[in-house]
């Protein structure tokens, strides 16, 4: 019983001190804080069409900002904003968000779709979107990402507005092309991850 008592006390102290990320003012914070108006404090979004960008792999975020800047990736606001930043500034913002933890909120998902989505993930996606979409070298984190954002992204990919990476195109539109229902199921699977 004794160790448990200690654990409770430690837990209690931790709660009181509130785990808020304290960060001294820096040029990186100055550039990045203002993004939180749409992407949430430190990059964890509370709005379903805006992606969480906290904890994203640096290579992916850098590439994404470059594509927004050039117009290669379609967007509403991001292309207009990305053009305002130098490559050096983008690098600072990418580093800032990459080091913050990806915050996950509970989302409404359909259990049957999640089950189908999991199968498809295991068969086709897990080689690049590792650990249920939590880990990746050059793509974004999908686990716990907002469902509506993933739906908008997949709609852009499938309509051809946004170019799929070669390997992704092979798995999505290649042999045994995924139906819209199957894509939706995969989205439910990823957004169900906590």
């Amino acid at each position: 019983m004794k160790p448990m008592g200690i654990a409770v006390i430690i837990g209690g102290c931790f709660m009181i001190q509130a785990p808020v990320w304290a960060e001294s003012p820096s040029q990186a914070a100055m550039l990045s804080n203002t993004c939180a108006g749409c992407h949430g404090t430190n990059g964890s979004s509370a709005g379903p069409s805006m992606p969480t960008i906290a904890g994203m792999p640096e290579t992916y975020l850098l590439e994404t900002m470059k594509k927004f800047k050039s117009g290669e990736r379609p967007s509403s606001i991001m292309g207009r904003l990305a053009k305002a930043y130098s490559d050096e500034e983008i690098k600072m913002m990418v580093d800032f968000f990459a080091k913050h933890p990806f915050g996950r909120e509970k989302q409404e998902v359909d259990a049957a779709k999640v089950a189908i989505g999991k199968q498809i993930h295991n068969q086709r996606c897990k080689k690049c979107h590792m650990d249920e979409g939590r880990d990746s070298e050059d793509s974004g984190i999908l686990a716990g990402q907002w469902k509506q954002y993933l739906q908008i992204s997949m709609s852009d990919f499938r309509s051809g507005k946004r170019k799929m990476p070669e390997k992704m195109a092979e798995k999505v539109d290649g042999e045994g092309k995924l139906t819209p229902e199957e894509v939706e199921a995969v989205i439910h699977f990823y957004s169900s991850q906590q």
Partner: peptide, 29 residues
């Protein structure tokens, strides 16, 4: 900052979808 920013190319429901997430995020913040 010159050569950046500006208005949306058109009216659209997608802009409305983004607006809705904007208010959620900013009030949450």
């Amino acid at each position: 900052v010159p050569n950046s920013g500006g208005v949306s190319p058109d009216l659209s429901e997608l802009e409305g979808v983004y607006a809705h997430s904007w208010i959620k995020n900013i009030l949450h913040e």
